[in-house]
Amino acid sequence: MLTTSEKEQIEKEIRQVPVKKAACIEALKIVQDHRRWVSDEGIQDVADILEMSTEEVDSIATFYNLIFRQPVGRHIILLCDSISCYVMGYKELHQQIVQLLGIQYGQTTLDGRFTLLPNPCLGTCDHAPALMVDHDLYRDLRKEELENILAKYT
């Protein structure tokens, strides 16, 4: 079931678009903001309010890589694996994270703290390598800095 605040936010988005369906991505984002990921129930909720079928909603949800259809940790590490970061050695960062957290891409730490995901270019190539943790961007990273950075997120 959608919470009141989810519902209000989604309804606001619906008012902005000519047909309800067009608010689908926004609605998915709203549900994800509240619940961190979009479960099957979340898909159903969005489908109900937008008068779509669950298949229709899930078709859209599964297309986009930043709609999470599986549980994720409290914090999401998006490691840029694109070309400038490749040249500047993102793989070292990756190894370091794997070592620090013991998780591979797509996995979540056992304590539910972090999920590690690869991410295409973060658009900060002049400060490669880079990664984001939640909303925070870290640039010109050296692997030695990682431990302190991750420590900020509990």
Binding site: E55, E56, S59, T62, F63
Partner: peptide, 9 residues
């Protein structure tokens, strides 16, 4: 129909 679709990318 409503219950058949394409998923993922």
């Amino acid at each position: 129909g409503k219950d058949l679709n394409v998923f993922a990318a």
